[in-house]
Nucleic acid binder design. Structure first.
Lengths: 145, 145
DNA sequence: TTCATTTGCGACTGATTTGGTCTGATATCT
DNA sequence: AGATATCAGACCAAATCAGTCGCAAATGAA
């Protein structure tokens, strides 16, 4: 129903946390999870996915944990969300390979594809550094109607 | 995972169908469902929700069916989607009444609220009449960063 | 070297959501 | 009266999601 998964939500929280604590020690999954009252196990799983996509870098061992792998301004909300939940597709039809079987008859496919791209555009415009700022400027995103 | 429900998808198909057949006879749920290879029962249910939100108007009885209740240019994709699936909220935290319990600690709440509004803006900018056109202009949507 | 700490990964379970069906009622036209 | 539609809600099965567990591998410190 057009909702972010909790995992993606937690991912954004974690990445923002790392952005705010950068140049300090690496943050362990446990540390982050406890700070926000999230299950340790689940936060660990989320951070693993972020690490696999090279959004954060992991450090094993005692006093290990996670660090941002890029500048906060180079990480978009879309990066985080799709690292955790896979590609953002508002309909199942939009996929490259599989289609909904009624693709030939389906008249909303193409309009929805454009809506999808607008949403991708919104999500990729929002960066972690923007999410960490107090002040908020305005930007314009091209909507392909 | 940020996907439109199938019901919302079917709703858009149905409304677009009605837009293309306006000034003709009323279209029954069965007629629309068969044209696109969708379960009749399910399409009926979708149309009922659209009727309850006054997006389409229903006509009972033989030769009855549904007609658009407004001009296609006055119906947005958001209207259709939220009529079927309820309000579009990308996180559960964003709700008016309930919050996620960790609201005070949650640092992504406010940024996500702005992303949510940008998405609402995208969806409300796309109208059924636009979805029926072949030619597509470009519009600008303000993104609140 | 040994041990505690921490990430990495896959399997698993339970809860929630969603897709889809069925039944019965009500309205309307012929 | 009878055929055709919508209306409403209960209902079920399948898919998805949240969250847990166990075990392996890497690393740092005593």
């Amino acid at each position: 129903m057009f909702k972010l998964s909790k995992k993606a939500d937690y991912g954004l929280i974690a990445v923002k946390h790392l952005a705010m604590h950068r140049d300090q020690h690496a943050c362990s999954a446990t540390e982050i999870a406890e700070e926000y009252g999230i299950s340790t196990m689940l936060m660990a799983k989320v951070l693993q996915k972020l690490a696999r996509q090279r959004i954060v870098s992991a450090k094993h061992g005692a006093n290990g944990g996670y660090l941002l792998a890029k500048e906060p301004s180079q990480i978009s909300a879309l990066d985080v969300i799709s690292a955790i939940d896979g590609p953002v597709l508002i309909t199942s039809c939009v996929t490259s390979h599989g289609n909904c079987g009624a693709a030939d008859r389906c008249t909303v496919r193409e309009p929805l594809r454009r809506v999808n791209e607008s949403i991708l555009s919104v999500l990729s415009t929002v960066t972690i550094s923007q999410m960490s700022e107090e002040q908020h400027e305005h930007a314009l995103v091209e909507l392909q109607t």
